[in-house]
Amino acid sequence: MGIIIPVKVIVDGDCLGEVLLVDRRISFYGEVDPVNGVIRGVNESVKGKALIFRGGRGSTVGSYIIYGLKHYGNSPSCMIVSEAEPIIITGAILADTPLFVALDYDGLVSLVKGKPGGLHARHKQGEKHVELEEK
């Protein structure tokens, strides 16, 4: 049994993926390239990951970029945020990418930082939590 992270489900769906933590707000328009799935500055692909980040910011075109990730086969497995705002919610619905708000986001961040070996995240549709397991 892994660590249970309680979440509020915004867009439901199954999620299974390696945790990628980008502890800031992301402007998907400008910062994420949908064609290769890479977050600029972080240089990591979001493809198949459980992407943990604070939330969205910047242009509302960001919703189309989240949809674009799906179109190019680079969608994250799910997104776990501190705050769900319109850009991210809209993008998640358009792309069918599960979206959760972590009830204790800061606690989640320190937990992830405390496991440098990496974590896997798992969520089954209908559940009210995400389960984390060490690799």
């Binding site: 075109v61 189309y64 674009g68 179109h71």
Partner: peptide, 15 residues
């Protein structure tokens, strides 16, 4: 708004 190809690109066009 947000209908310029130069802003929304291929993802916007496809959607």
């Amino acid at each position: 708004s947000g209908i310029s190809y130069l802003n929304i690109g291929e993802p916007g066009l496809k959607l």
